[in-house]
Design a binder for these strands. Structure first.
Lengths: 345, 345
DNA sequence: GAATAATGCGCAATCGTTTACATATTTTAA
DNA sequence: TTAAAATATGTAAACGATTGCGCATTATTC
């Protein structure tokens, strides 16, 4: 069992030719005869040759590795996007390297720098909540590497992006509530510094407006996307002199808190209060009542991000694309005021 | 705005010295004077120098990138382990590249090869269900790269591994059911070709045995870890002349199916049938009743995998470690026969 | 004050590929 | 038949860092 790693030079020597020929043969360069190509492949096989992609990348100036930066890799939405990306780019021989910003801009900057140092072919990023400076992203573009923003995008840097139409998602959700007979719809928003939450708020407002419903100040609350906060908020809302009869949350987790609090306090969901979440986290379909939620098309988003990247890198085009995916309202039990009581799931 | 990328040579030229000095200064080599070091750093900063880690890696023979192979990156358990790994190795300047096998051995082999070609510093893998040949893994070891198996391990390749004590997890779960007064405990197993499921079965058997409970053949069923299969299985079990009064599932998803079917068919959980799952998926705590489940310590596992790797790579030791983490039974409502009815979550 | 050690830095080879350019051979065209 | 074109391969210089070795210069020791 040899420890000696075999390079194209060994192959060349064994075949009494040169490294350049071997390299060309291996890369299916048309200027190599079918005969030598075969010989090279056979010998490579025989010697257990394994290419050193780093050497190749160094020479070429770019690797076949893509950098992905997300706030947290274990959040189902992000891990699902990552899966989508990996699945798609793998077909073209790319690998993905994952970095987590933990919602901190310093980490994000470090990550981007590390990725650039690693000579990645491009970077796909969902920016942190803290990100308000963009030099690190602009630097990527200045080096002519594809930079693709997804989900958490920004107008501050002029590049390709893929996101769902958060506005439309919210609009549809709220309209759905109205169509189901709810009249007083509260809105639980995430941090409005983040683009997606701003958009969801716009959608909420527009839907109410289009149906001639008033926008009630007290019904609009901003809070972290967590179960506990959902509970606190709904408690607060139900104490109002004129409490809402439905709530649209821009997060599944706070919506879950809302439902929990309501059922624990003898309100019926969806009869007394209708609830719609956002994210379509898997748990929504396991609840009782099952929760209506806006699906974010995470895997499709990953796939699209990958495609935009490939288009850019292979077509060597520098036109930027702004893709907006259509979210899908997953209607379940929590929003059926007029419900034909619980169909079997 | 220069397009020209700056290398250590430019820095050297600007400082009227050589690349070797710059390199050493940048790497904090002790044989460089404090004075030059400072000058180099300043100039590097001024010229906007960014190291090319690939060139360094090529020269050194290994990169600061770690390869991770998992069946699916968007399964909460795996994404959580990945997060743990990334979080830990980042401190030592490593990055992680993620590959998915989709439970196919061909993909796994391709992934491992790609990672080796990319000159990763080591590989961490949770093998696919199909994996019964191990040449690709042995090759990694033959090249003296750290190979660490996690969760889905195998005895067939002699290397470090990190897993939870599935045996103990199951043992604890079943004992817990017995202590809570359940007498007839069924077991829903995942694919027994996979090591973790075999271990969980061993734990189940041992617990019964130690409490002098008989092992009833009909109570032991193997099925895919999916909600639907849980439903099918429990239906089948409850039709038995002597149906079980509790079920321990080696998967949260099938356990969920079990609970769903039971409540839909007017059985009470936990009064009529107690249920314990495995995995402690986040959804378990959102259910009604909340589900008792064995926590797999995913993030801790990631952290440990990372530590074993670092120890191996930095200590340059080749002694292998087999770490078994202790799982933790998360006791919730679904297993309290004698339940002090539903405490507030 | 001579011998030895420590310090600071330069030279040049090297990691394993790719690729512009040159060369040799064969094919095609006129 | 011969110049031009096409094909197949070789030569050697990159890519951007690291590092063993060697040579000054300065510091230490006795």
């Amino acid at each position: 069992m040899k420890k000696q790693k075999t390079t194209i030079h060994e192959i060349a020597k064994a075949l009494n030719t040169t490294a350049s020929t071997v390299s060309r043969a291996l890369n299916n360069n048309p200027r190599i005869s079918e005969e030598t190509r075969k010989k090279v492949f056979d010998m490579a096989e025989k010697l257990g040759y394994e290419p050193n992609t780093m050497a190749a990348s160094l020479r070429r100036g770019h690797s076949k590795i893509i950098g992905i930066v997300v706030p947290y890799a274990d959040r189902i939405f992000f891990s699902s996007v990552i899966r989508g990306i990996e699945e798609e780019v793998k077909k073209s021989g790319y690998n993905v390297i994952i970095c987590q910003s933990y919602e901190k801009i310093e980490n994000e900057i470090d990550d981007v720098n590390a990725l650039m140092s690693a000579q990645v072919a491009g970077i796909m990023i969902s920016i942190s909540k803290e990100t308000t400076r963009y030099d690190h992203l602009k630097k990527v573009m200045n080096k002519n590497k594809p930079l693709i923003l997804f989900d958490r995008t920004t107008e501050a840097v002029n590049t390709s992006s893929v996101a769902i139409d958060d506005y439309q998602g919210a609009y549809t959700a709220v309209t759905h509530l109205i169509e189901n007979g709810y009249k007083k719809i509260a809105f639980l928003s995430g941090n409005k510094k983040v683009s997606v939450f701003r958009e969801r708020f716009r959608g909420y407002s527009a839907a109410l407006n289009d149906q001639n419903f008033p926008l009630i100040e007290e019904y609009i609350i901003e809070a972290p996307s967590e179960v506990e906060h959902g509970k606190l908020i709904i408690e607060q809302l139900m104490k109002l002199p004129n409490p809402p009869d439905a709530l649209f949350s821009s997060s599944d987790f706070s919506a879950l808190g809302v439902i929990k609090w309501l059922t624990q306090n003898n309100y019926k969901v969806p009869e007394d209060v209708g609830v719609v979440g956002f994210g379509n986290d898997p748990f929504t379909q396991y609840l009782d009542p099952t929760m209506t939620s806006v699906d974010q098309k995470s895997k499709e988003m990953g796939k699209t991000v990958a495609q935009v990247f490939l288009e850019q890198i292979e077509g060597r085009t520098s036109i930027h694309r702004k893709v907006l995916l259509s979210p899908q309202l997953m209607v379940r039990e929590s929003s059926f005021k007029l419900s034909v009581k619980k169909m079997v799931s």
